[in-house]
Design a protein around this nucleic acid. Structure first.
Lengths: 194, 194
DNA sequence: CGAATAACATACAGGCTGTATGTATGCAAT
DNA sequence: ATTGCATACATACAGCCTGTATGTTATTCG
Protein backbone atom coordinates (compact mmCIF):
# COMPACT_ATOMS: atom_id res chain seq x y z
CA UNK A 1 0.00 0.00 0.00
CA UNK A 2 2.06 2.87 -1.31
CA UNK A 3 0.82 6.03 0.36
CA UNK A 4 2.02 9.54 -0.10
CA UNK A 5 3.30 11.28 2.98
CA UNK A 6 0.41 13.71 3.11
CA UNK A 7 -2.05 10.85 3.03
CA UNK A 8 -0.26 9.09 5.86
CA UNK A 9 -0.23 12.21 7.97
CA UNK A 10 -3.87 12.99 7.42
CA UNK A 11 -4.94 9.43 8.08
CA UNK A 12 -2.91 9.12 11.25
CA UNK A 13 -4.04 12.48 12.60
CA UNK A 14 -7.66 11.66 11.84
CA UNK A 15 -7.39 8.32 13.63
CA UNK A 16 -5.77 9.94 16.64
CA UNK A 17 -8.36 12.69 16.86
CA UNK A 18 -11.23 10.26 16.52
CA UNK A 19 -9.80 7.86 19.10
CA UNK A 20 -9.11 10.73 21.46
CA UNK A 21 -12.60 12.09 21.00
CA UNK A 22 -14.18 8.82 22.02
CA UNK A 23 -11.99 8.46 25.08
CA UNK A 24 -12.21 12.08 26.22
CA UNK A 25 -15.97 11.94 25.86
CA UNK A 26 -16.21 8.61 27.60
CA UNK A 27 -13.81 9.01 30.49
CA UNK A 28 -12.92 12.67 30.63
CA UNK A 29 -9.53 14.28 30.09
CA UNK A 30 -7.82 13.30 33.32
CA UNK A 31 -8.76 9.63 33.12
CA UNK A 32 -7.72 9.27 29.51
CA UNK A 33 -4.11 8.21 29.09
CA UNK A 34 -2.05 8.78 25.99
CA UNK A 35 -1.13 5.08 25.74
CA UNK A 36 -4.86 4.32 25.50
CA UNK A 37 -5.38 6.94 22.82
CA UNK A 38 -2.50 5.65 20.75
CA UNK A 39 -3.64 2.05 21.13
CA UNK A 40 -7.21 2.93 20.14
CA UNK A 41 -5.86 4.74 17.10
CA UNK A 42 -3.71 1.78 16.15
CA UNK A 43 -0.42 3.62 16.45
CA UNK A 44 2.18 4.20 19.15
CA UNK A 45 2.66 7.18 21.40
CA UNK A 46 5.54 8.19 19.16
CA UNK A 47 3.08 9.03 16.41
CA UNK A 48 0.92 10.99 18.80
CA UNK A 49 3.76 13.14 20.03
CA UNK A 50 5.01 13.55 16.51
CA UNK A 51 1.74 15.11 15.37
CA UNK A 52 0.75 16.93 18.53
CA UNK A 53 2.89 18.95 20.89
CA UNK A 54 1.32 17.35 23.94
CA UNK A 55 -1.86 15.84 25.28
CA UNK A 56 -3.48 19.23 25.64
CA UNK A 57 -2.85 20.13 22.01
CA UNK A 58 -4.69 16.99 20.93
CA UNK A 59 -7.46 17.79 23.37
CA UNK A 60 -7.75 21.28 21.93
CA UNK A 61 -8.23 19.93 18.42
CA UNK A 62 -10.94 17.56 19.65
CA UNK A 63 -12.74 20.44 21.38
CA UNK A 64 -12.52 22.62 18.32
CA UNK A 65 -13.98 19.90 16.11
CA UNK A 66 -16.79 19.18 18.51
CA UNK A 67 -17.67 22.84 19.02
CA UNK A 68 -17.84 23.19 15.27
CA UNK A 69 -20.26 20.29 15.02
CA UNK A 70 -22.53 21.81 17.64
CA UNK A 71 -22.47 25.19 15.93
CA UNK A 72 -23.40 23.57 12.65
CA UNK A 73 -26.45 21.98 14.26
CA UNK A 74 -27.51 25.34 15.65
CA UNK A 75 -27.03 27.12 12.34
CA UNK A 76 -29.10 24.48 10.60
CA UNK A 77 -31.97 25.19 12.97
CA UNK A 78 -31.94 28.94 12.38
CA UNK A 79 -32.16 29.68 8.66
CA UNK A 80 -31.63 33.31 7.75
CA UNK A 81 -34.92 35.11 7.70
CA UNK A 82 -36.08 33.75 11.01
CA UNK A 83 -37.51 36.43 13.29
CA UNK A 84 -35.17 37.61 16.09
CA UNK A 85 -36.99 36.01 18.98
CA UNK A 86 -37.65 32.80 17.09
CA UNK A 87 -34.01 32.62 16.06
CA UNK A 88 -32.87 32.86 19.66
CA UNK A 89 -35.44 30.38 20.94
CA UNK A 90 -35.00 27.88 18.12
CA UNK A 91 -31.24 28.23 18.22
CA UNK A 92 -31.26 27.66 21.93
CA UNK A 93 -33.35 24.54 21.59
CA UNK A 94 -31.09 23.20 18.87
CA UNK A 95 -28.08 23.90 21.04
CA UNK A 96 -29.54 22.07 24.01
CA UNK A 97 -30.38 19.10 21.83
CA UNK A 98 -26.97 18.98 20.16
CA UNK A 99 -25.23 19.12 23.51
CA UNK A 100 -27.06 16.04 24.75
CA UNK A 101 -25.07 13.86 22.36
CA UNK A 102 -22.83 11.45 24.25
CA UNK A 103 -20.60 13.34 26.67
CA UNK A 104 -20.37 16.64 24.90
CA UNK A 105 -21.29 18.65 27.97
CA UNK A 106 -18.39 17.26 29.94
CA UNK A 107 -15.98 17.77 27.07
CA UNK A 108 -16.97 21.31 26.16
CA UNK A 109 -18.35 22.68 29.41
CA UNK A 110 -16.33 21.01 32.17
CA UNK A 111 -13.01 19.64 30.94
CA UNK A 112 -12.55 22.21 28.20
CA UNK A 113 -12.52 25.33 30.38
CA UNK A 114 -10.53 23.62 33.12
CA UNK A 115 -7.85 22.15 30.86
CA UNK A 116 -7.50 24.89 28.27
CA UNK A 117 -8.51 27.81 30.44
CA UNK A 118 -11.42 30.16 29.98
CA UNK A 119 -9.52 32.38 27.57
CA UNK A 120 -8.68 29.60 25.12
CA UNK A 121 -12.12 28.11 25.44
CA UNK A 122 -13.73 31.49 24.80
CA UNK A 123 -11.64 31.79 21.65
CA UNK A 124 -12.95 28.44 20.45
CA UNK A 125 -16.50 29.41 21.33
CA UNK A 126 -16.13 32.75 19.59
CA UNK A 127 -15.25 30.93 16.38
CA UNK A 128 -18.29 28.68 16.61
CA UNK A 129 -21.01 28.57 19.24
CA UNK A 130 -21.01 32.10 20.59
CA UNK A 131 -20.67 33.57 17.16
CA UNK A 132 -24.16 32.64 16.00
CA UNK A 133 -25.64 33.62 19.33
CA UNK A 134 -24.00 37.03 19.13
CA UNK A 135 -25.39 37.47 15.65
CA UNK A 136 -28.82 36.69 17.02
CA UNK A 137 -28.44 39.34 19.70
CA UNK A 138 -27.21 41.95 17.26
CA UNK A 139 -30.03 41.07 14.89
CA UNK A 140 -32.57 41.48 17.68
CA UNK A 141 -31.13 44.89 18.52
CA UNK A 142 -31.24 46.02 14.93
CA UNK A 143 -34.85 44.97 14.70
CA UNK A 144 -35.60 46.96 17.82
CA UNK A 145 -36.60 43.86 19.74
CA UNK A 146 -33.74 44.45 22.14
CA UNK A 147 -32.51 47.68 23.63
CA UNK A 148 -29.52 49.05 21.79
CA UNK A 149 -28.17 50.44 25.04
CA UNK A 150 -27.25 47.03 26.38
CA UNK A 151 -23.66 45.83 26.11
CA UNK A 152 -23.74 43.26 23.30
CA UNK A 153 -20.81 41.09 24.33
CA UNK A 154 -21.83 40.89 27.97
CA UNK A 155 -25.40 39.99 27.09
CA UNK A 156 -24.16 37.36 24.67
CA UNK A 157 -21.78 35.87 27.22
CA UNK A 158 -24.45 35.72 29.90
CA UNK A 159 -27.02 34.14 27.63
CA UNK A 160 -24.43 31.68 26.40
CA UNK A 161 -23.58 30.76 29.95
CA UNK A 162 -27.24 30.24 30.81
CA UNK A 163 -27.60 27.94 27.80
CA UNK A 164 -24.54 26.04 28.92
CA UNK A 165 -25.91 25.52 32.37
CA UNK A 166 -29.22 24.37 30.96
CA UNK A 167 -27.40 21.84 28.81
CA UNK A 168 -25.49 20.54 31.81
CA UNK A 169 -28.58 20.35 33.96
CA UNK A 170 -30.59 18.49 31.35
CA UNK A 171 -27.67 16.15 30.73
CA UNK A 172 -27.65 15.42 34.45
CA UNK A 173 -31.29 14.40 34.31
CA UNK A 174 -32.88 17.79 34.89
CA UNK A 175 -36.29 18.76 33.57
CA UNK A 176 -35.71 19.82 29.97
CA UNK A 177 -39.14 21.40 29.82
CA UNK A 178 -38.47 23.63 32.83
CA UNK A 179 -35.11 24.77 31.52
CA UNK A 180 -36.54 25.53 28.13
CA UNK A 181 -39.23 27.59 29.82
CA UNK A 182 -36.68 29.42 31.95
CA UNK A 183 -34.51 30.20 28.94
CA UNK A 184 -37.53 31.57 27.08
CA UNK A 185 -38.40 33.72 30.08
CA UNK A 186 -34.87 35.11 30.13
CA UNK A 187 -34.96 35.95 26.45
CA UNK A 188 -38.48 37.38 26.49
CA UNK A 189 -37.64 39.40 29.55
CA UNK A 190 -34.63 40.92 27.86
CA UNK A 191 -36.69 41.83 24.83
CA UNK A 192 -39.22 43.70 26.93
CA UNK A 193 -36.61 45.62 28.86
CA UNK A 194 -35.80 49.01 27.42
CA UNK B 1 4.28 20.64 74.21
CA UNK B 2 1.67 18.20 75.35
CA UNK B 3 -1.25 18.41 72.95
CA UNK B 4 -4.44 16.47 73.04
CA UNK B 5 -5.17 14.33 70.04
CA UNK B 6 -8.11 16.47 68.96
CA UNK B 7 -5.91 19.55 68.99
CA UNK B 8 -3.26 17.84 66.90
CA UNK B 9 -5.79 16.68 64.35
CA UNK B 10 -7.47 20.04 64.05
CA UNK B 11 -4.18 21.89 63.75
CA UNK B 12 -2.79 19.54 61.12
CA UNK B 13 -5.99 19.51 59.10
CA UNK B 14 -6.18 23.30 59.22
CA UNK B 15 -2.58 23.64 58.05
CA UNK B 16 -3.17 21.18 55.23
CA UNK B 17 -6.36 22.88 54.10
CA UNK B 18 -4.77 26.32 54.19
CA UNK B 19 -1.66 25.19 52.34
CA UNK B 20 -3.79 23.39 49.77
CA UNK B 21 -6.00 26.43 49.33
CA UNK B 22 -3.05 28.64 48.50
CA UNK B 23 -1.60 26.18 46.03
CA UNK B 24 -4.89 25.25 44.34
CA UNK B 25 -5.71 28.92 43.96
CA UNK B 26 -2.26 29.79 42.70
CA UNK B 27 -1.54 26.93 40.32
CA UNK B 28 -4.79 25.08 39.86
CA UNK B 29 -5.63 21.52 40.81
CA UNK B 30 -3.66 19.65 38.16
CA UNK B 31 -0.42 21.55 38.70
CA UNK B 32 -0.53 21.22 42.46
CA UNK B 33 1.24 18.11 43.74
CA UNK B 34 0.58 16.49 47.09
CA UNK B 35 4.28 16.63 48.04
CA UNK B 36 4.09 20.40 47.64
CA UNK B 37 0.97 20.64 49.76
CA UNK B 38 2.47 18.54 52.53
CA UNK B 39 5.71 20.53 52.46
CA UNK B 40 3.86 23.84 52.59
CA UNK B 41 1.85 22.57 55.54
CA UNK B 42 4.99 21.44 57.31
CA UNK B 43 4.04 17.77 57.40
CA UNK B 44 4.61 14.74 55.22
CA UNK B 45 2.32 13.12 52.70
CA UNK B 46 1.60 10.50 55.30
CA UNK B 47 -0.31 13.04 57.36
CA UNK B 48 -2.22 14.21 54.32
CA UNK B 49 -3.37 10.73 53.39
CA UNK B 50 -4.15 9.98 57.00
CA UNK B 51 -6.61 12.86 57.22
CA UNK B 52 -7.99 12.83 53.67
CA UNK B 53 -8.94 9.91 51.53
CA UNK B 54 -7.20 11.32 48.49
CA UNK B 55 -6.23 14.53 46.77
CA UNK B 56 -9.80 15.13 45.61
CA UNK B 57 -11.20 14.87 49.13
CA UNK B 58 -8.84 17.61 50.26
CA UNK B 59 -9.77 19.66 47.24
CA UNK B 60 -13.45 19.21 48.06
CA UNK B 61 -12.94 20.59 51.58
CA UNK B 62 -11.09 23.60 50.19
CA UNK B 63 -13.93 24.26 47.74
CA UNK B 64 -16.54 23.93 50.43
CA UNK B 65 -14.72 26.38 52.70
CA UNK B 66 -14.22 28.88 49.93
CA UNK B 67 -17.81 28.66 48.73
CA UNK B 68 -18.90 29.28 52.29
CA UNK B 69 -16.77 32.41 52.50
CA UNK B 70 -18.27 33.76 49.28
CA UNK B 71 -21.80 33.04 50.48
CA UNK B 72 -21.09 34.86 53.73
CA UNK B 73 -20.01 37.94 51.81
CA UNK B 74 -23.21 37.83 49.76
CA UNK B 75 -25.40 37.39 52.81
CA UNK B 76 -23.73 40.33 54.50
CA UNK B 77 -24.66 42.51 51.53
CA UNK B 78 -28.33 41.55 51.56
CA UNK B 79 -29.79 42.14 55.03
CA UNK B 80 -33.28 40.77 55.49
CA UNK B 81 -35.83 43.39 54.64
CA UNK B 82 -34.19 44.37 51.39
CA UNK B 83 -36.66 44.64 48.53
CA UNK B 84 -36.66 41.70 46.09
CA UNK B 85 -35.04 43.44 43.18
CA UNK B 86 -32.50 45.23 45.35
CA UNK B 87 -31.63 41.97 47.07
CA UNK B 88 -30.90 40.27 43.75
CA UNK B 89 -28.93 43.21 42.39
CA UNK B 90 -26.97 43.90 45.57
CA UNK B 91 -26.36 40.22 46.14
CA UNK B 92 -25.13 39.81 42.62
CA UNK B 93 -22.72 42.70 42.99
CA UNK B 94 -21.40 41.34 46.26
CA UNK B 95 -20.95 37.94 44.63
CA UNK B 96 -19.00 39.39 41.74
CA UNK B 97 -16.78 41.31 44.10
CA UNK B 98 -16.16 38.37 46.40
CA UNK B 99 -15.22 36.16 43.48
CA UNK B 100 -12.50 38.53 42.38
CA UNK B 101 -10.41 37.61 45.38
CA UNK B 102 -7.21 35.84 44.34
CA UNK B 103 -8.03 32.83 42.15
CA UNK B 104 -11.45 31.99 43.41
CA UNK B 105 -12.99 31.86 39.96
CA UNK B 106 -10.60 29.17 38.82
CA UNK B 107 -11.05 27.20 42.00
CA UNK B 108 -14.83 27.32 42.17
CA UNK B 109 -15.85 27.77 38.54
CA UNK B 110 -13.25 25.89 36.51
CA UNK B 111 -11.39 23.27 38.53
CA UNK B 112 -14.26 22.57 40.90
CA UNK B 113 -16.80 21.38 38.35
CA UNK B 114 -14.19 19.51 36.32
CA UNK B 115 -12.57 17.69 39.25
CA UNK B 116 -15.60 17.04 41.44
CA UNK B 117 -18.20 16.89 38.69
CA UNK B 118 -21.21 19.09 38.24
CA UNK B 119 -23.34 17.05 40.62
CA UNK B 120 -20.97 17.36 43.57
CA UNK B 121 -20.30 20.99 42.81
CA UNK B 122 -24.02 21.70 42.64
CA UNK B 123 -24.41 20.11 46.05
CA UNK B 124 -21.77 22.44 47.46
CA UNK B 125 -23.37 25.41 45.78
CA UNK B 126 -26.78 24.43 47.05
CA UNK B 127 -25.46 24.56 50.61
CA UNK B 128 -24.00 28.03 50.12
CA UNK B 129 -24.04 30.25 47.06
CA UNK B 130 -27.12 29.10 45.23
CA UNK B 131 -29.10 28.87 48.43
CA UNK B 132 -29.29 32.61 49.02
CA UNK B 133 -29.94 33.25 45.33
CA UNK B 134 -32.82 30.79 45.37
CA UNK B 135 -34.24 32.51 48.42
CA UNK B 136 -34.07 35.78 46.53
CA UNK B 137 -35.98 34.29 43.62
CA UNK B 138 -38.65 32.77 45.86
CA UNK B 139 -38.93 36.05 47.72
CA UNK B 140 -39.41 37.93 44.48
CA UNK B 141 -42.14 35.52 43.46
CA UNK B 142 -43.94 35.84 46.74
CA UNK B 143 -43.87 39.60 46.42
CA UNK B 144 -45.35 39.30 42.97
CA UNK B 145 -42.28 40.81 41.37
CA UNK B 146 -41.68 37.57 39.51
CA UNK B 147 -44.18 35.31 37.82
CA UNK B 148 -45.09 32.35 39.97
CA UNK B 149 -45.47 30.23 36.87
CA UNK B 150 -41.76 30.08 36.23
CA UNK B 151 -39.79 27.03 37.37
CA UNK B 152 -37.90 28.21 40.44
CA UNK B 153 -34.93 25.87 40.33
CA UNK B 154 -34.31 26.34 36.63
CA UNK B 155 -34.47 30.12 36.93
CA UNK B 156 -32.14 30.01 39.90
CA UNK B 157 -29.65 27.78 38.11
CA UNK B 158 -29.64 29.97 35.01
CA UNK B 159 -29.19 33.18 36.96
CA UNK B 160 -26.47 31.56 39.00
CA UNK B 161 -24.71 30.48 35.85
CA UNK B 162 -24.94 33.97 34.40
CA UNK B 163 -23.41 35.39 37.58
CA UNK B 164 -20.64 32.82 37.36
CA UNK B 165 -19.83 33.76 33.82
CA UNK B 166 -19.81 37.44 34.72
CA UNK B 167 -17.37 36.70 37.53
CA UNK B 168 -15.09 34.79 35.17
CA UNK B 169 -15.24 37.48 32.52
CA UNK B 170 -14.46 40.27 34.95
CA UNK B 171 -11.66 38.22 36.44
CA UNK B 172 -10.24 37.86 32.95
CA UNK B 173 -10.18 41.61 32.53
CA UNK B 174 -13.68 42.13 31.17
CA UNK B 175 -15.67 45.30 31.66
CA UNK B 176 -17.23 44.99 35.12
CA UNK B 177 -19.61 47.84 34.37
CA UNK B 178 -20.97 46.15 31.26
CA UNK B 179 -21.50 42.85 33.00
CA UNK B 180 -23.24 44.52 35.91
CA UNK B 181 -25.52 46.25 33.45
CA UNK B 182 -26.21 43.01 31.60
CA UNK B 183 -27.02 41.20 34.83
CA UNK B 184 -29.41 43.95 35.86
CA UNK B 185 -31.08 43.75 32.45
CA UNK B 186 -31.53 40.01 32.89
CA UNK B 187 -33.07 40.41 36.32
CA UNK B 188 -35.28 43.35 35.40
CA UNK B 189 -36.41 41.55 32.29
CA UNK B 190 -37.44 38.53 34.29
CA UNK B 191 -39.40 40.68 36.68
CA UNK B 192 -41.38 42.26 33.89
CA UNK B 193 -42.21 38.99 32.24
CA UNK B 194 -45.53 37.50 33.23
C1' DC C 1 1.52 1.08 84.02
C1' DG C 2 0.51 -1.47 79.87
C1' DA C 3 -2.28 -2.32 75.83
C1' DA C 4 -4.65 -0.46 72.17
C1' DT C 5 -5.29 3.16 69.07
C1' DA C 6 -4.62 7.33 66.69
C1' DA C 7 -1.23 10.40 64.35
C1' DC C 8 1.98 10.61 61.84
C1' DA C 9 6.73 9.32 58.80
C1' DT C 10 9.05 6.39 55.48
C1' DA C 11 9.30 3.18 51.74
C1' DC C 12 7.44 1.15 47.75
C1' DA C 13 4.79 -0.10 43.40
C1' DG C 14 2.58 1.20 39.40
C1' DG C 15 1.40 4.41 35.89
C1' DC C 16 1.72 8.44 33.14
C1' DT C 17 3.86 12.30 30.65
C1' DG C 18 7.28 14.13 27.81
C1' DT C 19 11.78 13.46 25.56
C1' DA C 20 15.60 11.34 23.39
C1' DT C 21 17.07 8.15 20.31
C1' DG C 22 16.66 4.74 16.68
C1' DT C 23 14.58 3.04 12.18
C1' DA C 24 12.10 2.95 7.92
C1' DT C 25 9.72 5.20 4.30
C1' DG C 26 8.80 8.87 1.00
C1' DC C 27 11.01 12.63 -1.62
C1' DA C 28 14.03 15.53 -4.19
C1' DA C 29 18.10 16.46 -6.79
C1' DT C 30 21.69 14.84 -9.55
C1' DA D 1 18.65 5.14 -10.51
C1' DT D 2 21.21 6.32 -6.63
C1' DT D 3 22.44 9.27 -3.01
C1' DG D 4 21.15 12.32 0.67
C1' DC D 5 17.79 14.30 3.46
C1' DA D 6 13.48 15.04 5.69
C1' DT D 7 9.39 13.16 7.40
C1' DA D 8 6.74 9.64 9.89
C1' DC D 9 6.82 6.87 12.90
C1' DA D 10 8.53 3.09 16.93
C1' DT D 11 11.22 2.12 21.05
C1' DA D 12 13.54 3.23 25.24
C1' DC D 13 14.29 6.14 29.05
C1' DA D 14 13.99 9.58 32.97
C1' DG D 15 11.37 11.96 36.17
C1' DC D 16 7.33 12.75 38.71
C1' DC D 17 3.11 11.78 40.92
C1' DT D 18 -0.53 9.21 43.24
C1' DG D 19 -2.05 5.89 46.43
C1' DT D 20 -0.81 2.14 49.62
C1' DA D 21 1.68 -0.59 52.79
C1' DT D 22 4.52 -0.68 56.53
C1' DG D 23 7.03 1.21 60.39
C1' DT D 24 7.42 4.51 64.43
C1' DT D 25 6.01 7.73 67.91
C1' DA D 26 2.71 9.98 70.73
C1' DT D 27 -2.11 9.54 73.29
C1' DT D 28 -5.72 7.54 75.47
C1' DC D 29 -7.95 4.32 78.34
C1' DG D 30 -8.66 0.36 81.27
Amino acid sequence: MARTNKERTEATRAQLVEAARKLFIGKGYADTATPDIAAAAGVTRGALYHHFEDKRALFRVVCEREAEAVAAAVDAATPSGTAPRDALIKGGEAYLEAMQLSGRTRLLLLDGPAVLGRADMDAIDARHGTRSLREGVVYAMREGALSRLLPVDAITALLSSAFDRAALAIDAGGDAEAYGQAMAALIDGLMQAR
